[in-house]
């Protein structure tokens, strides 16, 4: 394990931000700490970096107890959401900073910084000041700066949070490729489930200061441990008192085993997908739900708006009971390895 976090608690004044958090992060992995803002994910990252001291619990980095170590001696690279660029230094000097502190020979510094600037595609901007760079360029500079000292783990706090959507998407793909090249254990914080699913190979969902679930993107998406995780990871709808993904709703013209009657209220075409909204009548209760279909499937829709249909969850659909805050029993082919406490 590259990072072992054990029973970490942290409060700011009255507010408990982290409650008995334990997380293992495998060497060489690319892990996303995913959760809503205020969920404690940034604080956890800062605890790992030594920028916050936990009230209790331990942090091990590469098998070494780092709980009491100052950030200078943890061997971590940290990338801040707002870059924390050294405004008075050029791009080259920013990246060289950690190496200069370590008093490396000049030639080595020049070579290493050159390599890194190539890696982050900033070789042409070495002599510029951060003020002369775009947001995406500054963030890549900050990344190169953190990588320059060969950190044992690389920590990124909402690395793309301050960038616009287009640049975000580019940098996401680029971070994934970079990790495949550099292989340094990387943890990044994000509140964007799409970003976590696309980039990470492990997702740790944090909310209310506690780990809700951890696993591969597929696990967490397909086998959510609770209604909260299910809702946070993607779109949901409700059928028969359970939450499920709208693409797991089956529609047919005839009643069958486990079906519920419903009336189509609206059909919306959104490019490649079709959104079918309907009103379900079950056991005296009426409520709205919707299904996500491909265009092909929508072509076979038995009825238009106002028409009657029969709906049921697809075979093997991941579902969790609706309206319960507690993690529910798993409904799926395999149970994700949970770290939730």
């Amino acid at each position: 394990m590259a990072i072992e976090i054990r029973d970490v608690n942290k409060s700011f004044g009255e507010a408990a931000v982290l409650r008995d958090v334990s997380v293992d992060i495998a060497s060489g992995s690319l892990t996303a700490l995913l959760g809503p803002s205020g969920g404690g994910k940034s604080t956890l990252l800062r605890v790992v970096a030594g920028l916050e001291r936990p009230d209790s619990g331990r942090v091990m980095i590469s098998g070494r107890d780092a709980t009491r170590l100052p950030p200078q001696r943890r061997g971590v690279g940290f990338v801040f959401q707002h870059y924390a660029a050294f405004k008075h230094l050029t791009v080259f000097e920013n990246v060289a900073f950690g190496l200069k502190i370590r008093k490396r020979p000049k030639a080595e510094i020049r070579r290493r910084v050159g390599e890194l600037l190539d890696l982050v595609h900033l070789d042409r901007f070495a002599a510029r000041y951060p003020a002369q760079l775009s947001g995406g360029q500054r963030q890549r500079m900050a990344l190169a700066r953190a990588l320059a000292v060969d950190p044992e783990v690389l920590l990124l706090d909402e690395p793309f949070g301050a960038l616009d959507a287009q640049v975000r998407r580019e940098l996401r793909t680029w971070l994934r490729r970079l990790h495949d090249e550099v292989h340094v254990t990387t943890v990044f914080v994000t509140h964007d489930q799409e970003e976590a699913i696309e980039v990470a190979d492990t997702i740790v969902v944090l909310a209310d200061g506690a780990v809700q679930q951890a696993g591969t993107p597929g696990d967490v998406y397909d086998n959510p441990a609770s209604p909260f995780v299910m809702r946070f990871l993607g779109p949901v709808t409700e059928l028969g008192g359970r939450l499920l993904r709208p693409h797991d709703v089956e529609i047919s013209g005839e009643p069958g085993p486990g079906t519920t009657p419903a009336v189509v209220t609206r059909v919306v075409r959104l490019g490649f997908e079709v959104r079918v909204e309907f009103r379900v009548r079950e056991s005296g209760d009426e409520h709205d739900a919707w299904a996500q279909l491909t265009r092909e499937a929508a072509g076979r829709l038995p009825a238009g708006p106002g028409g009657g249909i029969h709906v049921r969850p697809a075979l093997r659909a991941a579902t969790v009971p609706a309206g319960h805050a507690r993690p529910a029993p798993q409904h799926g082919p395999d149970v994700p390895d949970r770290v939730s406490t």
């Binding site: 801040f80 924390a84 008075h88």
Partner: peptide
């Protein structure tokens, strides 16, 4: 002054006096 600059310098291995000399003072 962006306190994160100082934290970034600390995570890169700079001690308090180095942070003052190389990060705070020049700014």
């Amino acid at each position: 002054l962006d306190r994160e600059m100082e934290q970034a310098a600390a995570s890169l291995g700079a001690g308090p006096s180095t942070i003052f000399r190389r990060i705070i003072l020049p700014n």
